[in-house]
C-alpha cells in the first residue's frame, strides 16, 4: 500500500515535471480553449438573452474538446517515445497506474479550466465564477477525465492515434455533457429545483471510476 502510494506520487510528479519543461500540452489546450470561445462567439453572433441560454453549452463544448486534445496527447507522448513500456515494466498495479494518469490529467484539466472559466465570464458576461458552477465543473471534469484516461490509453495503441478518442469519448460521456451543462445553466439562472444533475454526475463518476480501475489493465497491457 505504501509502495503503491509512492508509485502514484512518483508518476504524477514526473508528469508535472515533464510538462513543466515541455509545456506543449498546456499551451495546446489553453490556446485551443480560448480560440474556440472566440470562434463560437463570432460564428453564432451571440448577444443579449441568447448568451444566457447557449452559454453553458458553449462552455462545456470548449472544455470537452480542449480536454480531449490534452488527454489524447498525454498517452501518445508516452507511447511514441516508448516510455509507456518503461512504466509497464515496473511492478505497479495497473489500477494504480490508472489513478496516477487520471490525477495527472485532472491537474492539467483544472489548470486549463482555471484560465477558461474567467475568460468565459469575461467574454460572455455570465457569472460562472460561483461555487455551484465550480462544483459542476469539478464533477464533470472528473467524469471526462475518467473515461478520457481509459480511452486515450486505448487510442494511443491504435492506428488512428488520438483521432479515435472522440469516437469513444463523445457518445459515452453524453450524461456528463448534459448534466454539467444543465447544472451550470441552473446555477447561472438561479433555478433551484429540477432534476438532480449533481447526483447524476456523482453517480456517473463513481460507476466509471470503479469500472475503469478494474478494466485498465486490459486497455494498457500488450
Amino acid at each position: 500500500m505504501k509502495l503503491t502510494l509512492q508509485q502514484v506520487l512518483a508518476i504524477v510528479q514526473k508528469d508535472l515535471m515533464v510538462e513543466m519543461r515541455a509545456r506543449d500540452l498546456l499551451v495546446l489546450m489553453l490556446t485551443f480553449a480560448v480560440l474556440s470561445l472566440v470562434i463560437f462567439y463570432l460564428a453564432l453572433d451571440l448577444w443579449g438573452p441568447v448568451v444566457q441560454r447557449v452559454g453553458p453549452g458553449l462552455l462545456w463544448m470548449t472544455i470537452t474538446f480542449a480536454a480531449m486534445l490534452g488527454m489524447g496527447r498525454t498517452f501518445v507522448r508516452e507511447y511514441e517515445r516508448g516510455t509507456l513500456a518503461g512504466l509497464l515494466l515496473a511492478p505497479i498495479d495497473r489500477g494504480a497506474l490508472f489513478i496516477s494518469k487520471l490525477l495527472a490529467n485532472l491537474i492539467f484539466l483544472f489548470i486549463m479550466e482555471a484560465v477558461t472559466l474567467p475568460m468565459f465570464a469575461l467574454l460572455f458576461d455570465l457569472p460562472v465564477l460561483n461555487p455551484a458552477v465550480m462544483l459542476a465543473t469539478l464533477l464533470g471534469t472528473l467524469g471526462l477525465a475518467i473515461l478520457g484516461t481509459m480511452f486515450s490509453a486505448m487510442a494511443a495503441h491504435s492506428r488512428a492515434r488520438e483521432a479515435l478518442l472522440p469516437l469513444l469519448l463523445l457518445p459515452t460521456t453524453v450524461p456528463i455533457i448534459i448534466g454539467a451543462v444543465q447544472a451550470t445553466s441552473n446555477a447561472i439562472s438561479g433555478v433551484a429545483d429540477g432534476p438532480p444533475w449533481i447526483g447524476l454526475l456523482i453517480a456517473f463518476d463513481v460507476i466509471f471510476l470503479t469500472l475503469s480501475y478494474l478494466l485498465f489493465e486490459h486497455a494498457i497491457e500488450g
Binding site: 509502495l3 509512492q6 508509485q7 506520487l9 512518483a10 508518476i11 514526473k14 515535471m17 515533464v18 519543461r21 515541455a22 517515445r81 516508448g82 516510455t83 513500456a85 518503461g86 512504466l87 515494466l89 515496473a90 511492478p91 505497479i92
Partner: peptide, 22 residues
Amino acid sequence: QTYLYEELSARENLLFYGRLYG
C-alpha cells in the same frame, strides 16, 4: 527504445524509475 524521458536528466530518470520499484 531507451524508456527515458527526454525532458528529464539522467539522474531524474533513474530516481523516478527507482521510486517505481520502491
